[in-house]
Every structure is written in structure tokens, then in C-alpha cells.
Design a protein around this nucleic acid. Sequence first.
DNA 1: GCGTACTAGGTGACATGTCAATCATCTGGT
DNA 2: ACCAGATGATTGACATGTCACCTAGTACGC
Lengths: 159, 159
Amino acid sequence: MNDEPRWLTDREQRAWQAYRRMFLLLNAQLARDLSRDSGLSEPDYDVLSSLASSPDHRRRVSELAARMLWSRSRLSHHLGRMEQRGLVAREECATDGRGAVVTLTDEGQQTIEKAAPLHVESVRRYFVDLLTSEQIDVFAEIGEHVVDHLKRSGDSGRS
Amino acid sequence: MNDEPRWLTDREQRAWQAYRRMFLLLNAQLARDLSRDSGLSEPDYDVLSSLASSPDHRRRVSELAARMLWSRSRLSHHLGRMEQRGLVAREECATDGRGAVVTLTDEGQQTIEKAAPLHVESVRRYFVDLLTSEQIDVFAEIGEHVVDHLKRSGDSGRS
DNA sequence: GCGTACTAGGTGACATGTCAATCATCTGGT
DNA sequence: ACCAGATGATTGACATGTCACCTAGTACGC
């Protein structure tokens, strides 16, 4: 079982390196833009935009975490920080005494509405607009395939 | 200049979402594997493998940062932590009084040699082996194109 | 209607990353 | 030779993310 390791070929290596580097730089650039333009971090933006697209601008904490693929703990910490800043609010859940519901405050709503167009512009400038529409589709397929595989192998077992 | 925002089309949205989600899950999975198998974080692995492939297993701090696309500050903090654990060592630079040289310790060397095959196996299992060779190449092209664009726009100016 | 197991959510300690500031050294022009 | 500014590296304060653990509430078999 433990023979010679299957090292990456040159082409595989190239793709893997490119991916890591792209993420590093792209992420840093988008974070800088977002912070400069809207005073938000990327996680802030993700939470706000996820809430904004939820029915009635509210969502159970676990549900939100599941949609975002975040751990509950991460979300809980982050909601605490955003609550301090007045971007979101927490309420008790009527139907489940353990539960909590997060809602978008007015300020949160205004913030995301101002931030979204600028953020989309950054995403276009540094990523989407650089790709052909074929590349866009290939990219989506790859991403979804990898995500599916990870979700399945995470749910069941190890292989 | 500030007309109607150019929102992402459905297909663009799909690709962007897939990318973000892929990174989130893939990264978490690789980090878990690496930590379980070798007691390393991903940044640890990157530093060790970058040093291991350097001439004489040594490198000026700035040079290392530039190759890894890390900020000096990030690298400096991380080297501090890795030095504590005995994975790397710092020396003064002979030719530049300000400079420092990082080297791989024996333990660092052994650690990366044990970790590499296992890590490659994870990268294959959760990413590389899921892609066709056409997809691998498209991916590399996209990544490199995006990185080039970011580097160029970072060097010169804003647009 | 009770006890056990599960679930929702939160916390604390800690590892990591960022930004701005600091300090020493180097370098180029005069 | 000297000074102004650039550069190499580190640091401190702070924001973020992870893991393990805790608490309260729910669900379900008996």
C-alpha cells in the first residue's frame, strides 16, 4: 500500500501552484478593496450578503452556518463581532428554546447595499472578466465536482 | 462612470460561488489531513517545502517571502513560531548587516520528508485526481493569468 | 413522565494573519 | 565624508479561525 509516492507531474504541479497563488493574491486584493471601499472584511460581506438574500432578512444560526459552509463556532464568534458593530442582531427563536435567529439591522442592510456593487466590480476586475465564458463554465464544473466529493467523503467515511 | 452595477450573470455567479466553496472545504480538508498525519499546518508545510527546495536548504528571509508571495511580516511571525518548535533556524547574513538567513534544521528536514508524500496523496485525493488532464491545464492557465494580472496591477497603479 | 442521547448555540484558549510603527543598516548624490 | 531616503527584518496590537468543551433545551424509547 505504501509504495513510491505518486508525486505530482509537472502539469499537475503547475495547476496546483497556480491555484494556491491565485487564491493568495486574489483574496488579499479583494479584502483590501472591500475594506477600503466599505469598511468590511470578506467574512463580514459573506454574512451580510447571505442574510440579505434570506427570507425576511432573518435566518436561524445553524441554517446560516450550513449555507455558508462555516462551522457554528466560527459563525458565532463572527456574529458577536458584527453585533457589536450594529450590523446584525440576535433574537431568541420562538419554536426552539435553544435556538437563535440572526437578523440584518437597518445599518447592516444599508451597508451591504452600498458594498455589493463595488465588490462585484472588484470580482469582475480581478477574476470574472479575465476568463472566457468557456473557462467560466469549466471552473464552475471543477469547483462543484470537488465540493461534492468533499461533502460526500466528509459525510460518510474515509475513502 | 457609476451607472447600473454589472451584476454577475448566473453562470458567473455559479463559478464564483463554486470557487469560494471549493476553497473553503478543500483547504479545511487538507489542513486537517496535514495536522493529523504530520502535525503541521499548511503554512508550516509551505515554508518547509519552500526551504527544502532552496539551494543548501537556506534562503534570505525576503527572498523566501517573495517566492511564497507572503508579506515579510507574516513570514517573520511564522518563522518565530517554527523556530520555537525547532523546524527552522535563523542566522545573520554575512553580506548585509540588516539581513537574516533562514535554514532548515535536521528535524525540519525529516519532518518535511515524512509529510510530503502524505500531503501529495491528500492533494491528489481531494483535487488533482478529480480533474481530467484538460481541466488541469485550463486551471493552470486561469490561475497564472489571474496571478499575472494581479501582480501587474499591484506593481504599477490602479487599473 | 423520565432518563439518556442528541442538538443549538456559545465560550475560552490558542494559532494565525494584518497593519502600522520601529530600528538598524545600506545607498546614492553632493 | 555625510545626510536623506530606501530597504530588511521584527514587533505589538488587534482581527480572525480552530478546537475542545460547556450549557440549556429537545426528542424519543420505555
